[in-house]
Amino acid sequence: MGRAPLFLAREGYRRRRLADMARFLPVLGAALFLVPALDARDGLSAAMLIYLFGAWGGLILASGLLARRLCRSAGTGQAAEAREEGP
Rank of each mutant, 00 (worst) to 15 (best):
M1R: 10
L65E: 04
A46C: 04
G86Y: 01
L52M: 15
S45L: 00
A79P: 02
V35C: 10
L52P: 07
Y13W: 14
R16Y: 03
G86K: 00
G58P: 08
S45N: 10
A4L: 14
R14K: 08
L66H: 03
F24L: 13
R23Y: 01
A40L: 15
A40T: 11
P36N: 03
R68Q: 09
R69A: 15
F53E: 04
R41N: 15
L61Q: 07
P26N: 03
G64S: 11
A40I: 10
R17H: 05
P36K: 04
V27M: 06
A74Y: 00
R10A: 06
A22M: 09
D42P: 02
F7A: 11
I60Q: 12
D39V: 13
G64A: 13
P5T: 01
L65D: 03
L34S: 13
L25S: 09
L34V: 07
E84L: 09
A80D: 15
P26C: 03
L61C: 08
P36G: 03
R15E: 00
A4K: 14
S63V: 05
L38N: 12
L66G: 02
D20T: 10
D39T: 11
L25I: 01
G57Y: 04
Q78K: 10
E85H: 11
A82L: 11
E85T: 13
E85Q: 14
R15C: 00
R10E: 02
A80I: 01
A67Y: 08
L44A: 14
R23M: 09
A4Y: 06
T76E: 15
R14G: 00
D39Q: 11
A9M: 05
G29H: 06
G58S: 13
F53A: 10
L28G: 06
G12K: 02
D20C: 07
L32Y: 05
R72H: 12
V27W: 08
P5G: 04
F24P: 00
G43Y: 04
L38M: 14
A55T: 03
G77S: 09
L6I: 09
Y13M: 10
L70G: 06
L65K: 04
P36M: 03
A9W: 14
A37F: 13
E85L: 15
P36D: 01
F7M: 09
L18F: 02
R3W: 11
F7H: 08
